[in-house]
Design a protein around this nucleic acid. Structure first.
Length: 1017
RNA sequence: GGGCGAUUAGCUCAGUCGGUUAGAGCGCCGCUCUGAUAAGGCGGAGGCCCCUGGUUCGAGUCCAGGAUCGCCCA
């Protein structure tokens, strides 16, 4: 007996129950034990930033990770299941800063770095707990509690080792250049931080045209255009295109002539003739500008499509400008400090932010008659990825890793990686070809301390490990709870060149160093011994029982067989791992990648808390259920954005209801017959099968084949497609056509249905772990003595390849039934009206399937043969096109008009051309008394002629339907017997008395009433 | 500004090698079946296949130019 199922699943309740079961029965632990000797499947989890609770976005990736780990586990693979948290860097810091109400770096320092670090760590601990709870609720099986935390001393130690190695190879340098700078965060940003979505935003900025009076040509001026007024005080040069023509207006203003095609100029000169002219800078009224000799330089990159054709050059405020300063030996003015405020020597501007300075600068220029025009300009402008502040360009000293020597090895390594979707691999190539040196330093607090100790003697000391730091310390180190600011800053070492005491630079490292080292730090690369709990060091102490494995372990698990993250990670984690791995080992750290696109709301808009369209994960678990969420994620092709929401969820719930109802049907009729399934039936249901049974067995095999193939290609969307189509076949074909057998207690049908349902649950269990597990308990574990306790302990169904011929034969039969239904509908003949004959042409249903066709279409006979009908002949275009060329039109018109001659043997003549059988397509249209339908070369014809017998049978069907509806309304059980009275006017139906009694479970029947009536017997 | 991709029904999307009447799901309307089903089946309304040219017997599909949108890079 099976436990009864409710009418529909309560996903939330069912899932909680399954979670409790898994915990109680330690299912996951047992699975891992079961697979311990199996082949390794190495997955490395990209660390999730621990600054939030689980969001539906994060749940997408976590679902994919879980689906494939579960699939591999079902295939017997031994896996690590290590989850990871990213615990340092701006994400964490800025969030905490906000919560504490701090607004600048100065305020953080006043607050105190040790306390600030403590608050950051608390945030991480809170978030790790939240993310873990959410992930468990989602159904993700990981080795929770053995997570890696990137802020552990062990992880930092590994990065130090990497940086030391890079330094030994001469790849670490201090750069002095113009970089994108966030004035609020007070730090420069790296190229890959700029690549994150949301960085470039539309923005309205001032648009100014300004006069630079020429010294060498009195009364004349250069006119330049800028959108960043604050950079004008840093102007040192003006660039013209040497080959372009410049014109002087009557008032003495010089501009590029091509920019103003409608103007007449008093004088024209090529740009090259303007080069070298001196001019008065826009802010020579301030000391820094006054000290500079401003001149005109030539530059091929001057745009002929924008501005005035003369470009204002401020090497301290722009990357290209900075490069020009090297070529032309221009002075560099750096007008603003770390927080984007003017330095004191900028007089009345001092202390003003770049934004606030704009108005004052415009006013001042106007007063001095230098302003030609002021307006607004809409453009895409980069913003800080974390705090949304518009970025500025600023000269800064940053630490870089040189990439040029690694570029080709990186490309070679990426060529060994199999990317899904493939275009993401090309994106990586693109990036690898174009990326610049890696800016690894950030002027912040809660991050990896860079182990750089420069010495006045010129030597850069790079410390390669915590151990080395302690050994080289100039004083005993007493207080170093974590390798982190502020504690680590106190440790001074001796320069190994001159012996002077040196201290660490203040900068911390780019957060992607933390994540990139993971394939080494968590797997024990070069670790001499296996240290249980060895990962729980520094800030991670007490947070995890993760081990520090030894090098042999690393050899076994590196590289990862598979990693999966969102597309954005190409330039972030996928890149940083690849970079570090190629640097350390020359190899890619992963062999296969599954990437996926972005999540939007169900209408296609970005999800934002402030827009009210953000879906809370807890809400989603409660209202749609984790299985439905997982289905929604898995049904998504990874190369398109996912439109996630409750609307699509309802559609999925409906689909799952079909599966649920199929199981409910099995449970209901199985229980009526006291059916007991045999676990061995999963291997094969044996002989004695009817045609539908044999088909369903093959259909299951096809499902297993298709799903296996889809999992192996990392395409969950194809798993879902295969499963959906299977459930449709199961419910709307097998069960529908076999209902009578179930009423009659046909045990074979029950066994085959059980086999099919259970096999399909096994196949879909990685996607729908809760529903599959719940139904496994009901259908398998409880009734079968020898069954595994969990669907996840049962392994992968081992079945033979499907028999295509058998599947095709049923497909033919179904096509005939579909056409028959179409024909009935066209002729307006209800299914309750039996018909005498169906004639089929163009397909030969297998003999054992003819009965199915007959029952489904309710016809007495199915004949295979010629359909008597009018001919419709069409040209077979792919064949005739190349043969006839321009004559095709004529032939086609003749055929369409019916102007053709039948030559026998399927040949025709039209418009003077003889057409062979394969050059035409022949279809048929209806005659009187017949209903015809045809498609794909199959034609069916229904004889719609009725006689008394057929009409009487129709009335019997009608009566049976009516009585059974009454039974239902009267609340009778499926097995209750009745005494049935039918109207006297229907006395002629008593001819079919036994049939009526059998169909309505009537023990007596008489025709004496006015209307049908029944009574429980 | 450069690169990549897209544009097909109200919405989300398929559309194979160029081929006959351009499809699916959802939504809408009508009909229908039902002894598991809240399901299923049948039909209908709804299309400038972004535009303009070209190649071809034939273009949603291939080519060129343009428009719009998205992504990536600057």
């Amino acid at each position: 007996m099976f436990a009864r199922l409710p009418d529909k699943p309560d996903h939330d309740a069912l899932e909680r129950e399954v979670l409790e079961r898994w915990e109680r029965e330690e299912t996951f632990r047992r699975l891992r034990e079961q697979n311990a000797g199996g082949p390794r499947f190495s997955f490395v989890d990209g660390p999730v930033t621990a600054n939030k609770s689980l969001a539906v976005h994060t749940a997408w990736g976590r679902t994919l990770k879980d689906v494939f780990q579960r699939y591999k586990a079902l295939r017997g693979h031994h896996q690590r299941y290590q989850n990871g948290f990213d615990c340092q860097g701006l994400w964490i810091e800025v969030g905490v800063e906000r919560e504490l109400g701090l607004n600048s770096k100065r305020e953080i320092e006043e607050f105190g770095l040790a306390e600030f670090a403590r608050r950051c760590r608390e945030k991480v601990i809170w978030s790790a707990r939240e993310l873990t709870a959410g992930s468990i609720r989602l159904g993700q099986w990981m080795d929770w509690g053995a997570d890696y935390f990137t802020f552990s001393d062990t992880n930092i130690d590994y990065i130090w080792r990497f940086l030391r190695l890079m330094h030994d190879r001469g790849r670490v340098y201090l750069g002095h250049r113009s970089t994108e700078w966030c004035p609020r965060c007070g730090t420069s940003l790296s190229q890959h931080e700029l690549s994150q979505s949301g960085v470039y935003q539309d923005r309205s900025d001032p648009s100014l045209t300004v006069r630079f009076p020429l010294v060498d040509r009195a009364g004349e001026s250069l006119v330049i255009w800028t959108t960043t007024p604050w950079t004008l005080p840093a102007n040192v040069a003006a660039a013209v295109h040497p080959d372009a023509s410049y014109g002087r207006r009557e008032n003495g203003d010089w501009v590029m002539a091509a920019r103003y095609p409608d103007e007449a100029f008093a004088e024209a000169l090529p740009g090259s003739e303007l080069v070298g002219l001196r001019y008065t800078g826009p802010f020579d009224t301030l000391p820094p500008g006054a000290a500079v000799e401003h001149r005109v330089i030539g530059w091929d990159e001057v745009s002929v499509d924008e501005g005035t054709g003369i470009v204002h050059i401020a090497p301290g405020c722009g990357a290209e400008d900075f490069e020009l300063s090297r070529v032309h030996d221009l002075p560099i003015l750096t007008p603003v400090d770390e927080s984007g405020r003017f330095y004191d020597d900028y007089g009345w501007l001092h202390g003003t932010s770049t934004g606030d300075a704009a108005d004052q600068i415009v006013g001042d220029l106007a007063e001095r008659g230098l302003l030609v025009h002021a307006g607004l300009y809409e453009h895409r402008y980069p913003h800080c990825w974390r705090c949304d502040t518009p970025l500025i360009f600023r000269i800064s000293d940053d630490w870089f890793l040189a990439v040029d020597e690694l570029r080709q090895p990186l490309l070679d390594a990426n060529a060994t990686v199999e990317w899904t979707p493939a275009y993401m691999g090309k994106r990586m190539d693109d990036w690898l070809r174009n990326m610049g040196d890696w800016n690894i330093s950030r002027r912040r607090y809660y991050g990896l301390p860079l182990p750089f100790y420069p010495c006045g003697c010129g030597r850069l000391n790079v410390v390669g490990s915590k151990e080395e730091l302690l050994a080289r310390a100039t004083a005993p180190v007493e207080d170093l709870p974590e390798l982190r600011r502020p504690w680590v800053d106190e440790v001074r070492i001796r320069c190994d060149a001159c012996g002077e005491e040196v201290e660490r630079i203040a900068e911390v490292g780019d957060v992607w160093l933390d994540a990139g080292i993971v394939p080494f730090s968590t797997l024990g690369w070069q670790s001499p011994e296996y240290v249980p709990g060895g990962y729980a060091t520094g800030a991670a102490e007490g947070l995890t029982r993760a081990d520090l494995p030894d090098h042999a372990y690393w050899e076994a698990w590196f590289p990862a067989d598979w990693v999966s993250e969102m597309r954005e990670q190409i330039r972030l984690w996928f890149y940083s791992q690849l970079f570090m791995s190629v640097a350390l080992t020359g190899r890619a750290p992963f062999t296969k990648v599954l990437g996926y696109e972005k999540m939007l709301d169900e209408t296609g808009r970005e999800m934002h808390g402030s827009w009210g369209n953000m879906i809370d994960a807890q809400d989603a678990f409660a209202r749609m259920g984790a299985d439905v969420m997982r289905w929604q994620y898995c049904a998504q092709p990874p190369d398109r954005n996912l439109l996630f929401g409750f609307g699509p969820a309802r559609e999925i719930q409906r689909k799952l209801l079909t599966l649920w109802n199929s199981v409910g049907f099995l449970v209901q009729y199985g229980n009526v017959e006291s059916f007991t399934p045999q676990y061995a039936d999963l291997e094969g249901v044996g002989a004695d099968l009817g045609p539908l049974d044999r088909w369903l067995v093959e259909r299951v095999r096809r499902l297993v084949e298709e799903a296996t193939d889809a999992y192996e290609r990392w395409l969950t969307v194809d798993v879902i497609r295969a499963f959906e189509s299977f459930v449709d076949d199961l419910s709307n074909w097998y069960i529908r056509c076999s209902r009578r057998r179930f009423w009659e207690g046909d045990e074979t049908a029950l066994r085959v249905l059980w086999h099919a349902v259970v096999q399909s649950l096994r196949v879909v269990s990685p996607v729908l772990p809760f529903l599959a597990e719940h139904l496994w308990q009901v259908l398998v574990r409880e009734p079968c003595d020898d069954a595994p306790d969990s669907v996840f302990l049962a392994g992968w169904p081992g079945v033979a390849a499907p028999d295509a011929a058998s599947l095709d034969a049923m497909a033919d039969a179904r096509r005939i039934v579909d056409l028959g239904r179409t024909a009935r509908a066209t002729a307006g003949v209800k299914l309750r009206q039996p018909l005498a004959r169906l004639v089929v042409e163009g397909a030969t249903p297998a003999r054992d399937l003819v009965a199915i066709v007959r029952d489904e279409l309710r016809v007495r006979d199915v004949e295979l043969g010629h359909v008597e009908a009018e001919l419709v002949v069409k040209p077979n275009l792919p064949v005739l096109g190349p043969k006839l060329g321009s004559e095709l039109g004529t032939v086609r018109a003749a055929l369409a008009a019916g102007e053709f001659e039948e030559l026998g043997g399927g040949r025709f003549r039209a418009a003077g051309h003889e057409l062979s059988a394969d050059e035409v397509l022949v279809e048929r249209s209806a005659r009187d008394g017949w209903a015809i339908a045809s498609s794909d070369g199959v034609t069916v014809a229904l004889d719609t002629e009725l006689d008394d017998g057929l009409e009487r049978e129709a009335r019997v069907y009608e009566l049976i339907h009516q009585v059974n509806t009454m039974r239902k309304e009267a609340g009778l059980a499926l097995t209750d017997r009745i005494a049935l009275t039918i109207p006297a006017a229907d006395a002629d139906l008593l001819e079919h008395g036994e049939w009526i009694k059998a169909e309505t479970l009537a023990v007596s029947l008489d025709a004496s009433g006015d209307a049908p009536a029944l009574e429980k017997a």
